[in-house]
Design a protein around this nucleic acid. Structure first.
Lengths: 143, 143
DNA sequence: ATCACTGCAAATTATTTGCATCTCG
DNA sequence: CGAGATGCAAATAATTTGCAGTGAT
């Protein structure tokens, strides 16, 4: 039970609903919304309430187990991928894919080592690439 | 009347409320919320309705006159600065300042010239730096 | 004159909260 | 056992919509 361990490490009570939600999140390869997670978890726990899903996702992102992101359209989504990465949004289809490139990470973090932001402690840098798909039926991808 | 010209260029009818809102936006050095703009415009047009402000800001961002941004907390804000720039968010105070650096822009755009994103047409790249202020009474700034 | 824009109020949607009950540790 | 989590329903917040009247081109 991977999820249980993660929860305890984060000082969260490992309730059934939390374990189910976390397992679903870890299996997710996309960036689910609250409603997505509600629908998914309802399959396993039909009695789960939407408020619990809200509270749970919130406590997960508080604890740093997942990240909260927002699309340009203002839709709240959750990102189970914690490693430093960017996002590619298609502003037509609202698709999001993760973007990860070591070279870019180096580039940006080196840059900010030189250029200091004054009176500010940087916690996270995120790069968002917005645009549109050329062939709407295929998905976008990184070379 | 700078605003009027901009509106006509964007194929939007130059109504009084739109001109007032756009002028306020152009004078703004920060990233106002809908409510901010409602309060400001109400000073000049006491009868203006909140729905109009919503619709107006929406049509402006549709037309590309301003940009819609979102804080990590999900607050919708508008950014009258259209040139390519990033944002520095303080996750405690919800302050946002623009971040612009030519060197960084070069760095990132060169990077994406090499690394192609397949089946995707990039429209905008935005870099968001999240963190906290060290001295909460002062503002953050870039060296 | 036409068609888009405005303002109002009502509707919708998203999210939060209070509280009684239950569960993990 | 006790702190903290859950589920429900109700509350709040944010945004949108329909529509009649108004105004810009």
């Amino acid at each position: 039970m991977e999820a249980k361990k993660l929860l305890l490490q984060a000082n969260l009570k490992a309730t059934h609903q939390r374990q189910v939600i976390l397992n679903l999140l870890l299996a997710c390869k996309n960036h689910p919304t609250v409603e997505n997670m509600y629908a998914l978890s309802k399959k396993e726990i039909p009695s789960i309430s939407l408020a619990t899903v809200y509270k749970t996702l919130d406590s997960f992102s508080q604890a740093g187990i997942i990240n909260k992101t927002l699309t340009t359209e203002g839709i709240v989504r959750f990102d189970p991928n914690l490693s430093s990465h960017g996002h590619i949004y298609c502003t037509n289809s609202n698709e999001i894919i993760d973007y990860f490139d070591n070279e870019l990470n180096e580039l940006v973090s080196n840059f900010f080592k030189k250029k200091k932001v004054k009176n500010f402690h940087i916690k996270k840098i995120s790069l968002n690439i917005m645009g549109t798909k050329i062939d709407p039926d295929k998905s976008m991808s990184i070379k």
